[in-house]
Design a protein around this nucleic acid. Sequence first.
DNA 1: CGCGCGATTGTA
DNA 2: ACAATCGCGCGT
Length: 178
Amino acid sequence: MQNTIPLSAEFYAQPVVEVAQALLGKKLIFGEQAGIITETEAYRGADDPASHAFRGKTKRTSIMFGPPGFSYVYLIYGMYYCLNIVTGVEGQASGVLLRGLLLPTVHLDGPGKLCKYLGITKEHNAYNLTQDTKFCVTAGSQLSLRYQSTPRIGIKKATDKLWRFVIDKEYLDFSLHA
DNA sequence: CGCGCGATTGTA
DNA sequence: ACAATCGCGCGT
């Protein structure tokens, strides 16, 4: 069915803030699991001190400088993995952190819990999400939805950027009770 | 080459 | 408020 086609490299090639907003309501597929993306954050290497890539390309962040549509999975606080999707054009680092996912039975809040529940680890770093129907994002419901923009969570730099995007609670409640 | 600290979370 | 826990990357 149409809905199983991975979002294209062209989609991810858009500016990171736009992609972060556009990913809300889309469906993340990982193995046999699938859920609706409810919360994202945008990170941009060029002018965003909160981004891992702000200080330039390193072994860890090199994936963020690569082509759009690839996974960037990193370990945080020695115990949690976080999943990002590389965006924008190759050579200019940016990516979207996935922070919330609505599954048929649970709503996962927080990037660490999201990866822990799905089983995403460093083994899933640097995957091309535009070529694999078992690890990708698809169009989802296509319903228009409301979301809020807020400062990003857990950072001390660039807190003026309202680059965290969350689907409205009312809309979430509707989905949960539908 | 050593060491401080982080895009987090659960528990006190 | 704070511990758990470890690899990255800055500074020496």
